[in-house]
Structures are given as C-alpha cells and as structure tokens.
Design a protein around this nucleic acid. Sequence first.
DNA 1: TAGATTGTTAATCGATTAACAATC
DNA 2: TAGATTGTTAATCGATTAACAATC
Lengths: 216, 216
Amino acid sequence: MKKQVKISNAVIKRLPRYRRYLKELHKKGVDKISSNEFSRLIGYTASQIRQDLNNFGGFGQQGYGYSVDGLYKEISAILGLDRKYKMVIMGAGNLGQAIANHTYYYKTGFVVDSIFEVNPRLIGIKINDIEVRDYEDLVEYVEENEIDIGVICTTKEVAQEVADKLCFAGVKGIWNFAPVDIEIPSHVAVENVHLSDGLHSLAYHINRNQEEAKTK
Amino acid sequence: MKKQVKISNAVIKRLPRYRRYLKELHKKGVDKISSNEFSRLIGYTASQIRQDLNNFGGFGQQGYGYSVDGLYKEISAILGLDRKYKMVIMGAGNLGQAIANHTYYYKTGFVVDSIFEVNPRLIGIKINDIEVRDYEDLVEYVEENEIDIGVICTTKEVAQEVADKLCFAGVKGIWNFAPVDIEIPSHVAVENVHLSDGLHSLAYHINRNQEEAKTK
DNA sequence: TAGATTGTTAATCGATTAACAATC
DNA sequence: TAGATTGTTAATCGATTAACAATC
C-alpha cells in the first residue's frame, strides 16, 4: 500500500462491489482483466476503476491489465477480510434470528458468537447452534471473548442504549438494523442499514416511472 | 409541486431520512422547525435542507420555518407513501421468513401478500398468516392480484431468473436481497440491498480505526 | 520493438455550501 | 415595522471523467 492520504467514502463503498465481481470472474476461470473489460462488466468507467485502485497501490501491469485473483486478494486485504470477526447479535427477535440463521457471512469470516436478549424465556436456548445469553452479562462477555462487532436487532427505542453498552464493553464496530441513527464515539465504526429507507426510495422510483409512462 | 427538473438520486436518498426525523419530532409534539434547528438535529447543513426541499416546492414560510407535520406529509407524498403497495416475497428461506414476519413495513403501507417457493414441502403452509404459494403460479398471481413489488430472497444463482419472471409478470419494483446486481428494464425500479457489502465496508473502518489508534 | 494498457495529471461535471434578496 | 428565515443564485468543493505520458 502506498501513502495513505484521505480516501473518500465513495471509494470504500465501491470496494466490496469490485470484490464481488472479481470473485465471480475467478470462479469462471478468468485470469486477467483490463480496466476497459471490467468497466463493461461492472458499470463504472475504466477511468474510475483505475483511479479507485490507485488510491491503494499500483495493482495492474501496463500493457496487460489486472490479475483477477491478485486484485481480489488485494481488495480483500484492504477491506480487512483476511481476518476473522466475532459478532454478537443484540435481540433475538425476527431479524436477530434471521441473521443468526444466515451462514452466508460466516464464509467471509464474520462469525456469530452469541445472541443477547432480555426476555428470560429465550435466554439459554440455542438458535442455529448459537447460544442466547442474558443481556445483563454483555459487558463481561464482550471483554472476555474479544468480540469485534455488535449487531443491533432491537427496537429503535432501546437501540441507542444498547449501542452505548456495546461501546462501553469495547466492540470495534456496530452494524445497526434499528431504524434510528446511532451516535457513538469516533473510534467505533458504525454501519446504519435502514432497510425501510431503501424501500421508501424504491416507492419514489415506482411512482416516477408510472408518471413517465402516463406522459408518453 | 413545481416544475419537475431532474432530481438527483442523492436528494431522493435523503428524503426517507428527513421523513424519519420529522416523524420523531411530530411524536414529541414539535410543531415547527427552522432549517437551522433541523440541521443541528439531522446533521445536514441548513443550506442543503432548504436546497433539497426546494426541488419539490416551497414548503416553508419565511421568518417562521417549516411546519413539522406539513413537511412530513409533503415528503410522504413525494415518496409515494400515501398509497399501499402489495409485495410478494420470493423464497421462503431465512431471509424471506424474516421479512414475512416483520410487521414494520406494514405500517407504512407495504403489505406482504404472498410468498413464492419451489420447495413442495413449504408450498401451502402459512408464515405469519401469509400463504406460501407455488413459484409456478407466480405470473398468473401477480397479474390477477396487481402486485407492485417483488422481494428477492433467493440464492444469487437464481436471482436474475426470478427477477426476469417478476418483470414479465408486471411488477413495478424489485427489492433485491440476493448478493448480485439485477438487470431489469428501465420501467421497473430496483433497489439492491447487498447487506454484506455494508459489513465489508464496516470491516474496513474497523481496521482503519485500529491503525490510527496504533499511530497515536 | 510495437502495441496495449496502466498510473497519474488535468479538465469537467455535479453536488454542496455560502450569500443574500425576497417575504412572511 | 423589524426580525427572522426561507427560496434561490452564485461560489466552492469534491468526485468523476478525459487525456496522455510511462512502461510492461
């Protein structure tokens, strides 16, 4: 990696997408790709692809292109996907259970360690072989087991309080599914998902398309 | 609404967030808010708030500010949240079931009508009182019941095929949770969620924070 | 070497912010 | 009316695209 200037968030947000496409190419047995071919596939300009990648280093080779597997590994390393992350899920409701049941994340190194709940009926049971523990024990558990990420699947009413406790316990990142914006100290990373926001902008586009159809 | 020039996607993506904050304010009994007060709360500049809103019309009043409830209703109308949307979920796996069990969307007018599956063991059962139907019957069902949105909760391998069938059947929008980018005709709206992309950029920020902590 | 394609600088475009006149 | 705050134009900033020299 070269000199780390400030890399814009727009670039970071594109990296997982690059990685996804490279993985598919690798699976199909493609060894090398030029920024131009990649552009046609992924839908960003060739210029942007080269610009983005050169924020992190010169991964290509002039006159040849980029090694698919090589670039895949570089991007994985940049994102930090060459290590494991221990996660705890906060809340054993529908969403919490759905995430606990998802084995997809496990493949990229995100392991659900435990689920935390306040409902005594759920404490002690297992969901997809993952133990549901008492919310009261959170801080101690996170510290002792070096948990990296807290996944908030609670109601919006308690989400901030739960986030505070997670930060106090020492998690490094929060993946928030509650429909509020969590405020946390700057040394903790946060990703607010806001599923319904996406649904609402989808609604906007549906109605715009229908208006356009009428006009024609 | 005033002359509809081209409104950038960045603006549209902010609307649901404005709406969320306005809803909270209304709940707290706040009647009016100035762009400055709103700025402090929501974290956008006052200038941006006024600029964004004026894409759609002059909702404020000089010397006074914006009516919280009035603006909430305006934004809801712009997004198209003053009507109902019928959705079908494609795939009765973990994610499909989780979405079926979520009553949250229902409140803003997004109603899950049915779930479609290929697995004969699941066809005919009910999940949260929603019937699981045969994928074979999709096209006919969507046409007859005027379904608006298809929610893709399948594997990435079949997602495009399912999307094609949904489009053929005449849905107006697709909410895609499969980790591929769906290609559809431009008259159909699409929202690709890509949950794991968010998790991957979270990993990036976690590692950046830890590097910074070391430097200090 | 000639051809291809990157890495990088320069130009353009679009989105955000600042300023201020209009007006409640 | 005076004060406040919007609506809107102008200035700035940052991100994307174009161009081309470097180099494999």
